[in-house]
């Protein structure tokens, strides 16, 4: 949430060289597409892990990753400090899967407990089995969104502290622990709905855009295809 969007909305994809395992580019493309369709100029910036992370972006995206790259990304982000400064500027952060875990206090990678960025009140460890499959549930009503639909693939379990609210009450899949899925606090939002989660959840994309622009609502778009996709996936899990 930057002051005035001079030069348009800046969407920063954090470390695509490390955190891009499941079509994570999709979230960046979808946000830019939906902003531009409303006449909001949007610039996408891909920042590799050997580059400095700008702290003046409007939206930061963190994707999924294998254990090694996840631990490396957390290390680099801690050293860089840019993401924490961006959060202090009330930038929007949308983090998926491994990216979601590393925003918390600790996470597990390759059997080791690793320090996270400690930017939201969560911690993650290993679950008894890998959670793979369709993920669905009802979103926190204060966010005013329709049900979440996504696909998850992770071995972690995430515990929420009092400083965050669960994003979703799970009806299909595992998410954090089989009961809740994802977490949010102010303008930071994390989910296990991996990869291009926003493809199936255009209203969530618009929420992030509202947070970033300070708008209360955005003009309607022709969502024929995303709506048909949502309907198909929610029907597939019996909703």
């Amino acid at each position: 949430m930057s002051s005035d969007l001079n030069g348009g909305l800046q969407i920063v994809w954090v470390y695509p060289d490390l955190l891009s395992t499941y079509g994570d580019r999709g979230n960046m493309l979808i946000l830019a597409h939906r902003a531009r369709a409303r006449g909001i100029p949007a610039q996408t910036i891909e920042v590799r892990s050997d580059q400095r992370l700008p702290d003046q972006g409007d939206i930061y995206l963190l994707g999924g990753g294998e254990d090694g790259p996840q631990a490396l990304a957390a290390q680099r982000l801690l050293t860089d400090g840019g993401l924490a400064r961006a959060a202090a500027n009330r930038a929007v952060i949308f983090a998926v899967c491994a990216g979601y875990q590393l925003l918390g206090s600790t996470f597990f990678a390759k059997g080791d407990k690793c320090p996270g960025l400690d930017m939201i009140d969560i911690s993650s460890d290993r679950g008894p089995s890998r959670a793979v499959g369709e993920l669905a549930g009802d979103v926190d009503p204060t966010l005013g969104l329709p049900p979440l639909t996504g696909f998850e693939n992770h071995g972690g379990r995430t515990h929420l502290g009092p400083g965050v609210k669960p994003l979703v009450r799970v009806t299909t899949g595992v998410g954090n622990d089989g009961v809740t899925e994802g977490a949010w606090s102010e303008t930071i939002l994390g989910t296990y709905a991996h990869g291009p989660a926003l493809a199936r959840n255009p209203a969530l994309a618009d929420l992030l855009l509202c947070w970033a622009t300070g708008e209360q609502s955005l003009g309607p778009l022709d969502d024929t295809w995303p709506d048909r996709l949502r309907a198909e996936r929610l029907t597939a899990v019996g909703r």
Partner: peptide
Amino acid sequence: GLDTSWLYD
């Protein structure tokens, strides 16, 4: 494979 997220890759 049950996951279509690769479409964005």
